[in-house]
């Protein structure tokens, strides 16, 4: 078996803004093979966007990040990679799709130019060749009337078409990895299904791996092969999509999946939420961050951090109780 396309080992991200320092990603490990789809799920603020964008240098201006651990992509260590080499990977080997295609596209430039730019930069094309490639890409993402779309501006397209244009930009240089940050969240429900179908189709054609950041379990079920559940900057459960969605082990994943509305729910039924609120991001905590909300909590949960332990059957979960670690052993740790 060959090495995975993307492999994170003990990756941590510290963020420094003018006022504060936080650790939104804390000791995270995962891997994505070629052509595979990893879904990273978690609520807002769980660190899933920072986990994916900080290592490739895509943070808003004014935010300083500090990375620890390792993130290897195609035998290149991304942690500590010089900015100039990172730029050749971004857009070329790694494509990115953002949540809101309206603001992610430049309002003052034509769609065709925004796509062609990537082909010029990474495939060394002339502007004429790149415009032709942009047209091919618009056909690839199944845009209606691609010739006239090339000359249009973002505000002239609907949300779904804009996201298709964004996807065309992301795949313009045939990347080996696509990072999609909630690609369907800003879209209508009917358009969401189309975009997911398009992503699956492109993945098959281009043999691209996808890291999909989402909080939509429906999206996870329809496209992902592996799932990582994040809570407060950590991966609390990691396994195949069947394992995590059908037999979740970590109490947080269990609660998350139990919270989904079901067809048999009567009209007017209250949402089944998790009690409590997620922790405010701050300094790393010694114990399990989910302990204050956990129905299975035992006394040492708040003191000893549970490792993400692989189980003989099923997914890996970071929980003392479900992994059935003897109490005495933990007391000595």
């Amino acid at each position: 078996m060959t090495a995975p396309l993307l492999q994170a080992r003990n990756l941590s991200v510290d963020l420094f803004t003018v006022r504060s320092a936080l650790r939104p990603v804390d000791d995270v490990s995962y891997s994505v093979g070629q052509g595979e789809t990893l879904a990273i799920v978690g609520e807002s603020g769980s660190g899933k966007t920072v986990l994916n964008f900080a290592p490739i240098g895509l943070m808003p201006t004014g935010v300083v990040t500090d990375l620890h651990g390792s993130l290897r992509f195609e035998d290149i260590e991304l942690v500590g990679l010089p900015a100039a080499r990172m730029r050749r990977i971004r857009g070329g080997r790694i494509g990115t799709i953002f949540q809101d295609p309206m603001s992610a596209l430049n309002p003052a430039l034509r769609i065709g130019r925004q796509i062609a730019e990537v082909a010029e930069l990474h495939l060394g094309m002339t502007s004429v060749q790149a415009e032709a490639r942009a047209l091919d890409l618009l056909k690839l993402v199944r845009m209606s009337d691609p010739e006239s779309r090339l000359r249009q501006y973002p505000h002239e397209l609907s949300g779904g078409l804009r996201q298709r244009a964004m996807i065309a930009i992301a795949v313009a240089a045939e990347p080996k990895l696509l990072i999609a940050d909630e690609p369907t969240t800003a879209l209508d429900v009917t358009v969401q299904a189309q975009i997911i179908a398009l992503l699956k189709d492109l993945q098959k054609r281009l043999d691209t791996a996808i890291v999909l950041i989402t909080h939509d379990m429906g999206v996870v079920a329809s496209i992902a092969s592996k799932v990582a559940v994040m809570y407060a900057g950590r991966i609390v459960e990691y396994g195949s999509v069947d394992q995590v969605l059908l037999e979740p082990r970590h109490p947080y994943s269990t609660g998350l999946i139990a919270a989904l509305p079901r067809p048999e729910d009567k009209a007017g039924t209250l949402f089944r939420g998790l009690p409590g609120a997620p922790p405010i991001m701050g300094a790393p905590q010694p114990g399990c961050p989910f302990a204050p909300r956990c129905p299975l909590v035992v006394d040492y949960c708040t003191d000893v951090r549970p490792p993400l332990a692989p189980a003989p059957t099923g997914s890996a979960a970071a929980c003392h109780v479900v992994n059935d670690v003897p109490h005495r052993e933990m007391a000595h740790a």
Partner: peptide, 11 residues
């Protein structure tokens, strides 16, 4: 945000 897209393109 579109400046972040430009960075994601490798510009």
């Amino acid at each position: 945000p579109f400046a972040l897209t430009a960075a994601a393109k490798g510009l």
